[in-house]
């Protein structure tokens, strides 16, 4: 990525579409400062009333796992089926559980 100091930095945009839901990554944009990033996100990513709340994060502050680590990160969860509710057999007739 070019680090030309004359370019507005890149921001990652997270939008909560409804109260109670999580903020979801929707894309990115450029802005000179956080306030501008929030306003641009409002104009760019909520033109069709998609938003309730906006988070902006400088793209360079996002640290990502490496794809080659995927096996060691996520595969161990493969054999932990007991983390999933369907693992358990419920007695017939029991309700609301």
């Amino acid at each position: 990525m070019s680090n030309n100091p004359n370019n507005w930095p890149l921001w990652e945009i997270f939008i909560q579409s409804k109260r109670g839901l999580e903020h979801k990554h929707v894309g990115s944009l450029h802005a000179a400062d956080p306030q501008m990033a929030i306003e641009n996100a409002r104009d760019v990513y909520t033109r069709r009333q998609e938003g309730n709340s906006i988070w902006v994060v400088l793209a360079e502050h996002v640290h990502a796992s490496r794809p080659e680590d995927a096996e060691s990160f996520y595969d161990p969860a493969d054999d932990k089926v007991y983390r999933h509710p369907t693992f358990y057999t419920m007695p017939e007739g029991a309700k609301y559980i």
Partner: peptide, 11 residues
Amino acid sequence: PVLEEDIALTN
């Protein structure tokens, strides 16, 4: 002057 502003101004 920049795409983001183009969008904002059109709004």
